[in-house]
Simulated assay, not measured.
Amino acid sequence: MSVIPTNWAHLPFFRDDWPRIAKALRDDTRQILPPEHQRFQALDLTPPDNVRVVIMGQDPYPTPGHAHGLAFSVEPDVRPLPRSLNNIYKEMREDLEDAPDNGDLRFWAAQGVLLLNTVLSVPAGEANGHKTLGWQSLAHQVLKEVSHRPTAFVLWGKQAQALAPHISSPKTGANKEDGHLMIETAHPSPLSARRGFFGSRPFSRINTWLAARGEPEINWTTA
């Protein structure tokens, strides 16, 4: 069984939902992605107190060898990049004039960027194959947990934007920087990227917001 991430173990999900989901995963005879030891890697790498930015994804890449537990991220040797990630990098080059050399985004996680999928497992070759297991309650609880202080939330596409009600307002002060930064645009997939994702400049907007709060900017481009 996947090891529960220590810093998030207090969430009710791990008491109320995880035992049932874990059994369903054990009973599923298909190849399940990502590998079991990486299933909670997004939470392992970014504890609650470190979260400054949340980027929500849908479910893991269904291609074996791609998913490693972080939304949109892939193992460093994956070529070509998944199409959504390739579009993310296209927008980053327009926004920041640079992008990472590969698709491994763990260095973002180390800086406080939580890359969380709404569903944390998928059968190989079957996108959305585990959408009915009940993973969504974990995403809801994580969003509520990190909402207690000002955070940048990136919600790409309608599925991610449907999670907005689970983001509560922090205790606000006199400045707008004391509230959340909400970036809601089209998804970076090839089907929708030209409907508002391209040109949205999310990376510089986040860094401008962080700088206004007196926080270090995110190094988006160089591992």
Rank of each mutant, 00 (worst) to 15 (best):
A99P: 12
S169M: 10
R30H: 02
I218E: 07
D98N: 11
R26L: 13
V146M: 05
K90V: 03
A223C: 06
R15A: 15
V113C: 13
Y61E: 14
V113I: 08
V142L: 03
M1N: 09
F72C: 09
T132N: 12
A223E: 05
A162L: 04
R79Q: 14
D16S: 08
D27W: 10
L70N: 07
Y61Q: 12
H166E: 14
L114I: 11
F198L: 12
P202S: 05
L181Y: 02
L191G: 06
A9N: 08
G134L: 06
A42Q: 09
I21G: 09
R26K: 15
T172P: 01
G214D: 11
I167F: 10
V51F: 03
S189W: 02
P48S: 05
L133S: 09
R15T: 12
R201Q: 15
L105S: 03
K90R: 13
Q38P: 12
S192H: 08
S168W: 09
P100F: 01
V78A: 10
A22K: 11
L115T: 00
P190R: 06
R15S: 15
P19F: 00
T6N: 06
A99W: 09
T208S: 15
A42W: 09
A109T: 06
L45N: 08
K131I: 08
H148G: 15
W156C: 10
N219G: 00
K171W: 01
Q161N: 10
A127W: 07
A193K: 13
P19R: 03
D16C: 02
F72S: 05
A212Y: 03
P34T: 07
V51A: 08
R93N: 14
P12Q: 00
L85G: 05
L45E: 15
P123M: 02
R149I: 01
S168M: 13
E145L: 09
M56W: 00
G112W: 01
L181E: 06
G134Y: 03
